[in-house]
Structure formats: structure tokens, C-alpha cells
Design a protein around this nucleic acid. Structure first.
Lengths: 125, 125
DNA sequence: GTATTTCACTTGCATTTTGCAAGCATTGTA
DNA sequence: TACAATGCTTGCAAAATGCAAGTGAAATAC
């Protein structure tokens, strides 16, 4: 049997705090790490080691957990890292790509109001 | 002495995880509750009881903590709840009002991708 | 003026999440 | 075949969260 990778078992929607779209989005994305992974994906990074080596230093167990949750929510999917290779990489789904305006809004606010921040070498397109 | 209210002592910028504006914004806003308070403020709510009675049911100790952090970050400020009254309310500063595009982006994503969500009676203008 | 209720919190404590370090089985490379 | 890199998992201490129950000042009712 091939080694088990992070599973993608979409769960039925967990109980929501409210029908508010903001609250609902925050149930998935509202923490210190998840949107940094999305940021990395938007910047073109795709592999576990890439996310793990971002300057913020996400712990590997947290990264595993967040990838699992993003898979379950269909924000990302797995793909082979290279043609023919067996290693896996991650990419944004349409639902994930749709997060770009959100990440851009966060980036723009940070740039304007948090002194000393600067945009990535690769801007979030 | 008047009773002590939540203090507004802006701290020198804590150590940052990275100079990335997204990471920096998430250090302040990246959790399940903070942006819901901002949402309520954008919807015109201004008092502790208003935030506490939103449908998500934020625990009062968490609400206290989040108001304190937003005060310290100059995202909100205190004002008297009514003319002449001694009770306090909260309002967004310019820095806080600048969060509107971010909250709107989150709301729009939630509306589009999380089935069953619906916008507030009072839309986020 | 006094009693009562509301408001804006605080406190204590159990539960959950986070963070760090170490370990480990595959996969790729020399 | 050895060795290193990758993509995780595990164990555990520390921090954050969530719930319930206070608490004292301010507003309201009587």
C-alpha cells in the first residue's frame, strides 16, 4: 500500500456560529496561519517544505493540520509535484483562487497601517 | 477615583514574525472573533452589550480582551455612549475604518463560497 | 432616596489549541 | 547501497479559549 497522505474527506458543514458570511469565513480562515499558507500558494509556492520554510516559521504539525482543513474545505487540492514523481504538491482550487481579493485587501491594509511592513518580492497578483 | 475602564496603552510594536504585511495584519486580526467586532462596528454597533449580543455569542472575557487589543492598536477608540452619560462606547478610528475593504472581501467570499450564508440586514457599507 | 436592574466587565477553572522538539517511514540522490 | 531530503506524526508543556459565576458602578424604577 502506498503511504497514506493527508486525506481529503470533505465533511458535511460543521455547525455554524451564525449564517453571517464573515463569521463563516472566519471559522475556516480565522487564525494566524491559514491565510499565510494561502498567501504562499498565491505567490506560486506549492510544497510542504516551501510553506514550512516561509519566514514566519509555521510549525510542521500546524501546517499539516491547516493543509488538511483547506483540503476538506476544497480550497486546495493535491497534485503530483513533478511529472512522474511520487511526491505531492498543493494548488488552489477555484474557491481558493477566489481568496485573492481578500489576501490583497489584508496586504494593502498592512502596508498602509503597519509601519515597517513591505510587500513580498513576488507581489500577490 | 472613577472606575477603571479598559486601558488604552499603546505598546511599542511587539516582535513581528516577519515584515510581511499579511502576517503583520494577522498578528492583530487573525482569530475567530476580532473581525466580528470590527464587522459590528462597521454595522453601526458601538457598545459592549451590542457586541456581546451578536448571534455568534462571543464570551465576555474574550470580548474584553479583543477590545483592549484593538484599543492598543489604535483601531478603535472610546467615546461616551450618550451626551453627558458616563457609560462608554467604542468607535472605529481611521485605521479601523480602513478595514472596511477587508471585511467586505471576506463577506463577499463567504457569500459566494459558503452555501447558506446571507448578508446582514444592515450591509457592510 | 431607596431598590432593582442593566451594564461592563473580572475571576476561576476545565478544555482546547498552539508551539517546540524529536522521531520516522518514504522518496530522491550519489 | 548509503545518505539526505521530504512530509509528515507524536509527545508534552504552555498558552488561548470557553463557560459560569461573580462584582461594582451607573441607570432606572419606585
Amino acid at each position: 500500500m502506498p503511504r497514506q497522505r493527508l486525506s481529503n474527506n470533505p465533511q458535511p458543514d460543521a455547525k455554524r456560529r451564525s449564517p453571517c458570511p464573515v463569521a463563516c469565513a472566519l471559522d475556516l480562515l480565522g487564525d494566524k496561519w491559514t491565510l499565510l499558507v494561502v498567501r504562499d500558494l498565491l505567490l506560486g509556492r506549492s510544497r510542504f517544505k516551501d510553506f514550512a520554510s516561509s519566514p514566519e516559521g509555521i510549525p510542521s504539525n500546524i501546517l499539516s493540520d491547516r493543509l488538511e482543513r483547506l483540503l476538506a474545505a476544497n480550497v486546495i487540492r493535491q497534485k503530483p509535484a513533478e511529472e512522474g514523481g511520487k511526491r505531492l504538491a498543493y494548488e488552489l482550487t477555484e474557491k481558493g483562487i477566489a481568496l485573492r481579493p481578500m489576501v490583497r485587501a489584508i496586504r494593502d491594509w498592512g502596508l498602509k497601517w503597519e509601519p515597517g511592513t513591505r510587500a513580498e518580492l513576488q507581489p500577490v497578483r
